[in-house]
Write a protein that binds this DNA or RNA. Structure first.
Lengths: 229, 229
DNA sequence: ACAAAAGTGTTCAAGGTACACCCATGA
DNA sequence: TCATGGGTGTACCTTGAACACTTTTGT
C-alpha cells in the first residue's frame, strides 16, 4: 500500500546534512523569585565584552547528549542549588544575530522558586536577584525573552496553581494577593480575590496564624497537596 | 559602577564552545487545512528507512544564516507554493533520541491556509492532505508535535481571528461553524455561535448569498479587513 | 484608644447556555 | 409540498466587579 522508493538510511542522511551542524543551541532560564513585595529575576553580569556591564539571564549551551528540558534544569540547579523547582518551556528565539559569538538559537524557560530557600553562592559574585521592573536594557535579546516569559506567566496564574512556588511553605492570603498584584502589575480587590482563589481549591489551611504582626493576624495556608483534579 | 573583570570576547568564547556545535536544528510545520468538513494536515511519507511508510510533518534543517521564523516560512512556501500564510511558533522539541540521524532539536510551527488555493505539485507524489483524526502513528515524535499544535490552536480560536485563514475568501456562517466544530471536536449551538462571533467584529458582510444550495441560501461573509483593534 | 489589616456578602452587569419557531430556496 | 438549512430572541445561570463594616491584635 505504501510503495517504498528512494529511502535513505538515517546514517546516509546524516552525512548529507553534516554541513548543517553549525548552529549552537542554548537554553535560557528566566528564574523568578519574590522578595520585598516585588517580582524578582535571577540575573548575572554578562561575561561578554560586547555586553559589558549588562545583565544577562542564566543560560548555557545544550550538551550534545542532553535533552533540552534537562539542560535547563541543569542550569537552574547549578545556579540555585535547588531541585524540584517548577520549570516550563516557553519558546525558542532564533534571530541570526542575537548572539555575537555566532549562530546560537536559544530556548527560553521560566522557573518559579521560593527565594528564601536560595542561598546565593558567594563564589558567584555577579549573580543576583533584581526586580523585574528595574531591568531595562539587558544582554543579547534577554529583555525580550523576559517579557515573553512574564507575559506567559501572567496568562497562567489564574489557570494553574503556579505562584505558590514563589512563596514560603506557609503564607497568609495577603502575601498571596500582593504577589498576584506584583505579577499582574495591577491592584486586586481583596474580597473578590479571596473568592476567586477559594473556589479553586488550591489552598489548605494550616490551622496556624501569623505571629508578631502589627495588626490582627491572618490565617496561614499551604498549597493543597492533593488537588481535586 | 560595574567592574569589568575576566571578560571574554565573543570570538574567544566561540572557540571555547566550538565542541558544542554538534546539534542540528530543524523546523517542523503543522500545516492545517480544511476540506470535506474535516481538519486536515499536510504530510509527506517519511524518506527515512526507520520510518518507512509512516507520515511525517513537513520540515527541514535550519540553514546557518537563516532565522528560525524564516526557515519555517521557507518550508511552507516550498511545499505549498503559497505566500502570506499564517504561521506561528509553538515550541521546541528536544529529546535526544527523537531523530535517528543524530541529535536534531526541532522547533514546531503551525500554519493555517486555504486548502483550495493549494495545488499539490505532482512532483511531490507523497505529499498529501490527511484528516487529523485519521493519523495515528507518525514518524519521529510528529504525532506529539501535531497534538501540541492542535491544542494550542484550540486555545486560540475564540481569542484571535484564526480560522478564517482556513476558508475561502467568501463563506457562509454555517461553513465557519462546521470548521469550529471540527477543530474543537464538539458541536456548537447555532444561535449561540452566531452571537459569539458577531460581537467580535471579525466578519464583514459581502452582500452576496450562497448559490445553488439545496436549501435557503445563507449570507456570504468575508474577514474584516480593518479590525477594530 | 488607636492603627492596621483580617474577615466577610450583596448587588449589578456581562457573558454563556439551553432551547423553538418561521422563512427561503431547490427539487 | 417537501426537505433542508437560514435566521432570529428569551429565560436562566454563572462569573466578574464594585463596594463597607466589624473584628482582632500590638503598641
Amino acid at each position: 500500500m505504501t510503495p517504498i522508493t528512494n529511502l535513505k538510511s538515517a546514517a546516509v542522511e546524516k552525512r548529507i546534512h553534516q554541513s548543517y551542524f553549525k548552529i549552537a543551541l542554548s537554553v535560557d532560564c528566566v528564574i523568578f523569585g519574590y522578595a520585598e513585595k516585588e517580582l524578582q529575576v535571577l540575573v548575572i553580569k554578562s561575561d561578554l565584552k560586547e555586553f559589558a556591564g549588562q545583565w544577562s539571564l542564566l543560560g548555557d549551551l545544550v550538551r550534545p547528549e542532553e535533552n533540552i528540558d534537562k539542560a535547563s534544569y541543569r542550569v537552574l540547579e547549578e545556579r540555585t542549588g535547588l531541585k524540584n523547582v517548577y520549570l516550563e518551556q516557553v519558546q525558542a528565539f532564533g534571530e541570526c544575530k542575537r548572539h555575537p559569538s555566532g549562530r546560537v538559537v536559544t530556548i527560553a524557560y521560566y522557573s518559579l522558586l521560593d527565594i528564601s530557600n536560595h542561598k546565593l553562592q558567594l563564589s558567584d559574585n555577579d549573580l543576583c536577584w533584581r526586580p523585574v521592573r528595574s531591568l531595562r536594557k539587558m544582554a543579547f535579546d534577554h529583555r525580550q525573552i523576559l517579557d515573553t516569559c512574564l507575559q506567559r506567566l501572567r496568562e497562567q496564574v489564574f489557570e494553574k496553581p503556579l505562584l505558590f512556588n514563589l512563596l514560603p511553605n506557609k503564607f497568609a492570603l495577603r502575601n498571596l494577593q500582593e504577589l498576584y498584584e506584583s505579577v499582574l502589575g495591577e491592584t486586586l480587590d481583596r474580597r473578590n480575590f479571596r473568592k476567586k482563589i477559594a473556589v479553586k481549591e488550591w489552598l489548605q489551611e494550616t490551622g496556624e496564624m501569623e505571629r508578631s504582626v502589627l495588626h490582627r493576624p491572618g490565617r496561614l495556608y499551604t498549597r493543597q497537596t492533593s488537588p481535586k483534579r
